[in-house]
């Protein structure tokens, strides 16, 4: 499974970013390979329009199976993600990435 997080930094100790399209970073945890990659969203978050769909496309290109975030994607991004099989978990806006992952594993995060 590949698990993506919207995050304010690039490590397990960083805070989750509640926003989807305008997140600072996207982190991708590959459970099989045990690797944590980070993707800088500097370009996307400064878009005047359409930051959400752009991030949704990144998520699909990375072939993430799960997204863990805060508020959940907006209408435009959801139009894309809703068509994909990505499972979206929300409510992690005030957690660290590690805590959010543990909460997800424990089944404590609500599905979007």
């Amino acid at each position: 499974m590949k698990i993506a997080f919207t995050a304010q930094g690039t490590t397990w100790d960083c805070m989750i970013e509640a926003r989807f399209g305008r997140t600072d970073y996207l982190l991708l945890w590959d459970e099989e390979a045990q690797t944590l990659e980070s993707f800088d969203n500097n370009e996307g978050k400064n878009e005047a329009h359409g930051a959400g769909p752009k991030m949704a496309k990144v998520l699909l290109d990375l072939k993430a199976d799960v997204l863990i975030t805060g508020n959940g994607p907006g209408e435009n991004a959801n139009a894309i993600l809703g068509k994909s099989g990505v499972k979206m978990y929300v409510g992690a806006g005030d957690m660290r990435v590690k805590e959010a992952y543990e909460a997800y594993k424990a089944g404590k995060l609500p599905l979007f």
Partner: peptide, 16 residues
């Protein structure tokens, strides 16, 4: 960003 290419589809976002 009113058009997005995913899988084999072009999605149009009229409000953008």
């Amino acid at each position: 960003n009113a058009l997005i290419h995913i899988a084999n589809e072009i999605l149009v976002f009229p409000n953008l």
